[in-house]
Design a protein around this nucleic acid. Sequence first.
DNA 1: CCAGATATGACAGTATGCTGTCAATATAAA
DNA 2: TTTATATTGACAGCATACTGTCATATCTGG
Lengths: 152, 152
Amino acid sequence: MPLEKTEAAKLLTEIVLLTFRLEGGFLAAADKISGPAGLTAARWKVLGAVLYEKRSVAEIGRVMGLARQSVQRLADILVSEGLAAYEDNPAHKSAKLLAPTEEGYARIARLADRQTGWANRASQGIDAAELAATRDMLARLITHVEATDVPA
Amino acid sequence: MPLEKTEAAKLLTEIVLLTFRLEGGFLAAADKISGPAGLTAARWKVLGAVLYEKRSVAEIGRVMGLARQSVQRLADILVSEGLAAYEDNPAHKSAKLLAPTEEGYARIARLADRQTGWANRASQGIDAAELAATRDMLARLITHVEATDVPA
DNA sequence: CCAGATATGACAGTATGCTGTCAATATAAA
DNA sequence: TTTATATTGACAGCATACTGTCATATCTGG
């Protein structure tokens, strides 16, 4: 006899599918917003992760929930394009810290207004309190999902 | 002077980042759940889209929010592995309909309990009404995002 | 009925992100 | 201090999903 799903589990299952779809939409928008500034969604993510704080590649991966190998590749590209640079890490000989260059900051500045315009338009007519509740639930789900292991 | 973000836009921006991260977690869980049944998250998605209704490749893409080329590749793989088959479409000469084979249904059955167990555990302690509200908001955001175009 | 517009499958190329692996570095434990 | 463990960067390989392009099929408007 098959296992029974709780009410919450049924809803979570629906949320999974919606999340896949929403992520696709967000990613497409991020690519269109960042394209004219010579960036992609993925490079924007990495550059954005070190805007206010220098971080090692592995640290960026942890903050963004990405494999450090994925970040490494993007960080190398950003450096090769002159948008970021590796700086010495006093606390670790080989784990250098990634930081944006002036050009990197300039690229982010170039897409800021486009991102703001998009966010204003896409969120138009949606109640802020409901959005805040959704944000909180997403954060909670991230914690739960990353803590629930799947038996082999 | 830079554009101003509305309160809702600020929240939406936070939601974007959380969605990226949550999607990654869901995807990793889906791969682990489907792996023992000889499937991957992506193949599960496509097979799941035709479980109760035969669909053309392009139709699956629309339903799941994927490019039809991405679905085509996965559908071909499912067919080559005997988990699905193309059937003639009375309404369209070349756009055949994808449908699971008996083996395809069997694979899905094999992971059903694992998926249920995961969903029960991951949603434990979360209020169903709040989850329902989140689900509704995600659906609403999908509509909004897919309707908001980004100026070139 | 027919011409233009749209939908579809097919193929190619590219970007993103994963796992696996190894050596070097850093940290914790004995 | 010394040894075991964990972290990090680097490199390779693979899965997923995108855009671009073309030919064919279907649909629509005149």
